[in-house]
Simulated scan of single mutants.
Amino acid sequence: MRIGKQKVELLNPQSYEELTEKIEIAGRVCYQSEPKGDPEKFIRMIIKRGHESVLEHGSLTFKVRTNRAIANEIVRHRLASYSQESTRYVKYDDIEFIPGEKLKDPNLENLLLSAELAYKLLLTTDFKPEEARDILPNATATTLVMTMNFRELRHFLKLRLDKAAHPQIRELAGMILEILKEKYPVFVEDIEKYPVFVEDIEK
């Protein structure tokens, strides 16, 4: 049994300049105007006006490592494409868990170990991995690849950085936000983490 951490990796880094220029060209079709050499200014304008459908012309793909519970929340965002690790076809020998903070207590980790032992025991009988997986908890680690356009990314971040969101999905959303702020700032410069974000994750 292993206790892991959530991770986010950007799989398709793109040129910021080319991406913003493409979105400006697409957006200016609506106004029959020509690019003026400042795509960031144009993108700020369309975001301010709520004309965010133009942002759908750009998208990013992320590889996400999280647990089954949080993955179930992520895939509820329907305007995206997902590919996820299959517990039907993957047979686990050393199970990784990514539990919430309370389950990281050494006394409670025994519950996860018990689930792993039960899973392995079932596999020694006539249970297939797709049947034995029913014994695994939501803390079981999983990997998924998701592709979202910038409009949906903004929607995802606004919902999942909210104080009411689950702490683990807030942590993931924060990782995605940091990547975007570093590489594609104009799309998220109006989106901030809540001041209590880091404190909440550390508790």
Rank of each mutant, 00 (worst) to 15 (best):
G4I: 12
I191R: 11
A118E: 02
A165L: 08
L10F: 08
L79P: 00
T87N: 12
R154F: 11
E116D: 10
R133S: 07
I46D: 06
V188N: 06
L172F: 01
P106T: 12
P185T: 12
I43P: 04
Y194F: 15
F97C: 04
L10H: 02
E189R: 04
R170K: 09
K181A: 07
K158M: 13
I169G: 03
E171P: 07
N107S: 12
L157N: 05
I74T: 06
I46W: 07
Y194A: 15
K203A: 12
R68I: 15
P195N: 08
I46V: 14
E52W: 06
P129A: 10
T125R: 00
E178H: 06
K5T: 15
P167T: 05
T20C: 09
S81P: 03
L177E: 11
I98E: 07
D162Y: 07
S83N: 12
S33G: 08
V54S: 08
S59R: 05
A165V: 03
R44D: 08
D38T: 07
G58P: 02
H57N: 09
L108Y: 05
M175A: 01
V198C: 00
E17K: 14
N138V: 13
Y194N: 12
L103Q: 00
A164E: 15
F187I: 02
N67P: 04
V64Q: 00
K22Y: 12
E17V: 13
P185N: 11
R68V: 14
D38C: 07
S81T: 15
L108K: 08
E152A: 12
M146K: 00
L117Y: 00
A165Y: 03
L108M: 07
K193V: 11
S114A: 15
E24S: 11
I95Q: 07
K22G: 05
E96V: 14
I176C: 06
K63Y: 01
Q168K: 13
A141T: 05
Q14F: 11
E199D: 14
L172T: 02
T142D: 06
N149W: 05
F156Q: 06
E152S: 10
V186H: 04
A80R: 02
E24K: 07
R160P: 04
L177D: 09
D94L: 04
S81N: 11
V188F: 12
L123I: 11
T125Q: 11
I25M: 14
I95S: 04
Y194I: 14
L180P: 05
K91A: 06
I23H: 01
